[in-house]
Simulated scan of single mutants.
Amino acid sequence: MSRLLRHTAGERGLAMTPDGWAAIADVCALLQMDRTALAAAVEQNDKARLQVDGDRIRACQGHSAAGMPVTCEALENSWRRVTPQELLWHGTNTAALDAITREGLRPGRRTHVHLAPSRNSHVGRRSAVDVLLGIDPVKLGRPVFEAPNGVLLVRSVPPEAICRVEKADAVH
């Protein structure tokens, strides 16, 4: 369900609003599941990625940029704009560090870069990472948004906003 609502709705023909909402009945029909199974999937999602509002459902964040009927603007309008004062964190692998140092963080195939509010956060950070990047929110120069599940999102992170690089092992 998370894959459908984050990545494949367009190719599977699921009607979706620009901020990611789809009718629960349509999702159940596409996935051949009933409402009880859908509710269980939402409840058991380990990253609280799914959000239900009446008869509609969406992924809170993490949408693919291509092939999905969502827009950056509509997603951002559905999230809460925040002004963090502490460092934000992004987990990555060592192989990506050279490119990140030159270009900053880009969303790649996603609409936004995911950030975490703390080094040991369970949201906004991949579980298997080599290094954590400390991001200075003042140097970002762009708005930061918080999805309903607590993930912080930004369209990109310029290289000058990355002020720390730490081994991920040091924070466990």
Rank of each mutant, 00 (worst) to 15 (best):
S2K: 01
S2C: 04
R3A: 05
L4V: 02
L4H: 02
L5E: 02
L5I: 00
H7P: 00
G10A: 10
E11P: 00
E11S: 01
G13C: 15
G13N: 12
L14M: 05
L14A: 00
L14K: 00
L14D: 01
T17A: 08
W21H: 01
A23H: 06
A25G: 11
D26A: 09
D26L: 11
V27I: 13
C28M: 04
Q32K: 09
D34G: 10
R35I: 08
T36I: 14
A41E: 10
A41Y: 07
E43G: 00
E43R: 06
E43S: 12
Q44H: 04
N45S: 03
N45D: 14
D46F: 04
D46Q: 02
A48D: 12
R49V: 03
Q51F: 10
Q51M: 10
V52G: 00
G54A: 03
R56V: 01
R56Y: 13
R56E: 09
R58A: 08
R58E: 03
Q61R: 01
A65M: 03
M68W: 03
V70K: 05
V70C: 14
C72N: 10
C72S: 14
E73Q: 15
E73M: 13
N77P: 00
S78L: 08
S78M: 13
W79H: 05
R81M: 14
V82M: 13
L87V: 11
L88R: 05
H90A: 02
H90E: 04
G91Q: 01
G91I: 08
G91A: 02
T92D: 00
T92H: 02
T92G: 05
N93Q: 09
N93I: 15
A95P: 06
D98W: 10
G104Y: 05
R106C: 08
P107K: 12
G108I: 10
T111V: 01
T111W: 13
T111C: 14
V113E: 01
H114F: 14
L115T: 06
P117E: 14
P117S: 12
S118G: 05
S121I: 06
H122F: 04
V123K: 02
G124L: 04
R125P: 00
S127V: 11
D130F: 11
D130L: 05
D130A: 01
V131L: 01
V131C: 11
V131P: 06
L133G: 01
D136M: 02
P137F: 02
V138I: 15
K139C: 12
V144C: 13
F145Y: 15
F145G: 04
F145M: 07
A147R: 04
N149A: 04
G150A: 15
G150I: 12
G150F: 07
L153Q: 13
R155W: 12
R155L: 00
V157H: 07
P159H: 05
P159T: 05
P159W: 09
E160Y: 02
E160D: 11
A161K: 08
I162N: 09
I162S: 10
C163K: 07
R164W: 05
R164S: 04
E166R: 09
E166A: 03
E166N: 01
E166M: 09
A168E: 09
A168S: 15
V171M: 09
V171H: 14
